[in-house]
Design a binder for these strands. Sequence first.
DNA 1: GTCTCGCTT
Length: 685
Amino acid sequence: MDEFLKIFSENQVIVMVGETGSGKTTQIPQFVAYSDLPHTKGKLVACTQPRRVAAMSVAKRVADEMDVQLGRHVGYSIRFEDMTEPGTTFLKYMTDGMLLREAMNDPNLERYSTIILDEAHERTLATDILMGLLKGIAKKRKDLKLIIMSATLDALKFQKYFSLRSDANAPLFKVPGRTHPVEVFYTQEPEPDYVEAAIRTVLMIHRAEEPGDILLFLTGEEEIEDACRKIKLEADDLMNQDPSSVGPLVCIPLYSSLPPQQQQRIFDPPPPAINDGPPGRKVVVSTNIAETSLTIDGIVYVVDPGFSKQKVYNPRIRVESLLVSPISKASAQQRAGRAGRTRPGKCFRLYTEKDFMKELEEQTHPEILRSNLSNTVLELMKLGIKDLVRFDYVDAPAPETLMRALELLNYLAALDDDGNITPLGEMMAEFPLDPQLAKLLIVSPEFKCSNEILTITAMMSVPNIWLRPNNQRREADAAKAALTVPDGDHLTLLNVYNQYILNKHERNWAWNNYLSLRSLQQAENVRAQLERTMQRYDVELVSLSDQKKLFINIRQALVCGFFMQVAHKEGEKGNYLTVKDNQVVALHPSCGLDTQPEWVIFNEFVLTTRPYIRTVSEVKAEWLIEFAANYFDLASFPDGETKRALQRAWAKRAGKIAGRGDGSNGPVRDPKRRKTDVRKGDGRD
DNA sequence: GTCTCGCTT
């Protein structure tokens, strides 16, 4: 503490490295609060976390340690839950995303005397943007102190980045961890099939190693369930063959979409010995969730095949997808460390030492380099950052990614042609949504269906609501068919939500209909939050009683947000071509449309067994040229079926206007020309 | 004929 307080009092910015078990997350913020005395200045100390649960549980722990009531002097702030008391709270744990939101309305973060960014090595999108902002703010606000806390040895990068004067890096404060040593083993040769090798290794440990639980890292749900089945089968075999030398084994799967109750099973004790035989062993087979978010005590052996699923973004076709990729050295170290939490452990890496040294990257690529940045760019614009290309990033994203984001925002009329944020863009930034969804919601009152669009928007921003267990596919499909609206998947989402609300009194309704209750509850939460934001910005909540008209209007409103995600049917084979990007796509098999309409609008482009579009509704060519005239301008299309279809629609429209005689159909509003009226749709008549 | 690692506003 003395050492920390000295360095803290002498510097504006500190980089701190503390390994797991060093207590940095609980202790440093307390030291800061005692030294800084934020409450005497009417300010707060903030400590950010990448995850909600961490912000919550650490705040609780620290409140206990300080013997104060949680939510008063020490509190936390996460989405949907503010456990702080204005005027009283002086130490606040919060998610990094939450602090970023606050910055949008308080660009200098004046409320804070010290800001601590914890787990900076994880390089979440929000942490990266915050580092950029805070570097700028620290130059303006000499009274603001910053602490960048990280678990791994990438501190030098942060020290260099935060050298506020050119001649000196930010000082480093280092605290050792308190974990047990872990012995690391490598394979002699690369393993061609890492799942098979992993199963073999787990069984080898079970047969030959001392008692102690095993943690195996795999990449996804299916792989994990599959491996659990195989391990269980073989372990039972071993025990039956030789009950005197092999004990019982339980295999527990762990991934985020598992219901919380089943996740709790990882804390169960290992199975008891049978008839004085060898003691039982617990094997947890987990995704990356056990690398960062959950710690399981009692793990002595870690099996690390060296892979995880990672998000990748391809700006050329604007698609984010998940790829099984090699992990980084930092990740491998983190995984190994999981074996040494209670006593010395062993880590079996299923790759060669040479590959570890030569092939693995030092750090996982920061999220900012692997994501679609439309949302982030709009947030930065709202924060007053005008020149995004020259913003001081820790790692600058690809120029093409930024261009894609700017292009989308300009088409949505969130940015004008000079790259300035428009009043519409300012409003869009206030909604915790992707820009397309925010735009859709804001224009929806014009179509007299904001009540419904609010629901659809909420449903589109939560994880998949459809459950389809492997052994009950037919039942799940039948339940889904009963809820499907044939006009489009967006209307199906609306129907599901409405049915869920109507049947709330029925305890097992969601389960009986093969729907994820968790997702539905989350949609309800999101819907309420969005409704509050709508009220704040006077976006009316309206609806139509004529259902036929309502369903048409909903799909017209969709065009205003998603006109860049339209596909046109080519030929009779059921192939679609995305507009402008010309990607050949198919309707996802989960799509509920009963025909194959000529034009469709979609929520997602997914690249799995082949390119699919998911959550799809029918639209009309007339709507495209009416509500997104600028984007569907013929001059911007190459020759082809899509262009010819659009030409017919334009010709039909011209005929109508000519027929009216006076040409008084009003101006065709182009999003780029509209700078004042923020409420209207793109080119809405 | 489906297959979403992990997070967040």
